[in-house]
Design a protein around this nucleic acid. Structure first.
Lengths: 163, 163
DNA sequence: TCGGTTTTGACCTTTACTGACTTTATTATA
DNA sequence: TATAATAAAGTCAGTAAAGGTCAAAACCGA
């Protein structure tokens, strides 16, 4: 059951994997032709699959010989990420959480099992509870989610250091 | 006398039996059409027959080319944890959580890192949030904690099987 | 006839995809 | 050298295609 979206994502990820420097330059129109879809479909893939919360940065230029550049952000140390989350991020949505956790897994900071545990806590579990709660409490849940992510990452940091 | 429910269950079970890896991906609408019933009937079958207590895990995605995935967990590893979930889990205090997680670690179900992650989510993180919240919401937090534990345990089970 | 189980339907949320329109850069030309 | 033509990419609102939820109706065995 793969959507067009999924196929394009896979294709681009593979391109990035095979590139020497974690970055590729593509042409929106070309990719759209290859997949026989509307060019704006590529934008959709970029915003949903290659955003910052998933560990990517996208740059582009319009006009003649325009391009789209996708860069995979490396994490060399976890610390800055945690301190960033600590300061700036207090209301994470499910999709953001999934993105960040996948990113950390890709970068080798956590195992697949750990990633699944983290998502279970922050996505599935909270969604279960949210059903039976006032809508006005939505904000609270974003806050709880952020708090959980932060504390879990602190643990990872600590252990990284202990070993 | 077989109900529609039973027929759908049998059908899905057979599909899973015949699948190489104890997991199938279906489309709710398609199955509903085949059995000429309301799509929500499929949800009913899933929640009553393919839940965790019966050894199944269901994942799904909405939207265009959405799907429903049913995974079967081997029952031997499942039993102690499930029977625990069935009884105890609706109102857990911090101390309970720590006890359970330690037990899981002792029994080799989870690693030390995983144990720390779980405690971070269920104890530290929730305590942080709780400070800034009405005392009357204590009950809610026990409930959230329970939900997180439950979902994390389900992941542990699932992964045990996937490897 | 009563309580649990099944079944349905109306309505909701999420995700994917497109097309018309806009913006920006390059290139050819008067 | 302006300016028009061309060749990109971006935006956004609208549509379609899924699956989810919940309460009410229907059914059924004791």
């Amino acid at each position: 059951m793969f959507s067009l979206c999924d196929s394009i994502e896979k294709y681009l990820v593979k391109l990035i994997e095979n590139s020497p420097n974690r970055a590729i330059v593509i042409q929106r129109g070309r990719i759209a032709q290859e997949f026989d879809c509307a060019p704006s479909q590529i934008n959709y893939v970029l915003t949903t699959r290659f955003n910052v919360f998933r560990g990517f940065i996208v740059e582009s230029r319009r006009g003649g010989s325009g391009y789209v550049k996708i860069i995979r952000i490396p994490i060399d140390r976890l610390e800055p990420v945690v301190s960033f989350l600590e300061k700036a991020v207090t209301d994470l949505k499910e999709a953001d959480v999934e993105g960040i956790v996948n990113w950390l897994e890709r970068e080798g900071f956590i195992t697949e099992r750990e990633a699944r545990l983290m998502k279970a806590a922050m996505v599935t579990a909270l969604n279960n509870v949210q059903c039976s709660v006032d809508q006005s409490d939505k904000k609270n849940f974003h806050f709880i989610r952020s708090s959980i992510l932060k504390e879990m990452l602190i643990q990872v940091l600590k252990m990284d250091f202990l070993e």
